[in-house]
């Protein structure tokens, strides 16, 4: 059995078993931010959430936002592009740190 249980996704609200008022506030904020059309459409928000789900490597979120993307009209091509945005951002974030390495090399007189 995997460490994560997919059926836990449906039990998300149970986190509010303790400190319920904080969880209620979270859900209100979360649902407004992600689940409704705003300046961004629900589909655009779902694609962003799917990208974040990948950078955070959250299997619950990947399941949830794969469905949410489809139910808001996105297609696998758009969803895959969103993951590439996440992946390339992650790569870029890693690569920009090479300048830190170069600074360090300079300090040591090696560059």
């Amino acid at each position: 059995m995997s460490y994560y249980d997919p059926s836990d996704l449906k039990r998300f609200a149970e986190v509010g078993k303790f400190s319920k008022e904080l969880m209620d506030k979270f859900f209100e904020y979360y649902n407004s931010a992600v689940g409704e059309d705003g300046a961004l459409t629900k589909r655009e928000k779902s694609l962003i959430a799917l990208a974040v789900a990948h950078t955070e490597q959250c299997p619950y979120c990947i399941d949830a936002y794969t469905t949410q993307c489809l139910e808001s009209g996105a297609d696998p091509e758009q969803m895959t592009e969103a993951v590439h945005v996440a992946a390339s951002m992650s790569a870029g974030i890693k690569l920009i740190h090479a300048l830190q390495m170069q600074n360090s090399l300079k300090k040591k007189g090696a560059l």
């Binding site: 459409t41 589909r43 469905t67 489809l70 139910e71 808001s72 009209g73």
Partner: peptide, 9 residues
């Protein structure tokens, strides 16, 4: 999965 909004689609 359920269909998206008909209007948007």
């Amino acid at each position: 999965y359920l269909p998206p909004s008909q209007e948007q689609l």
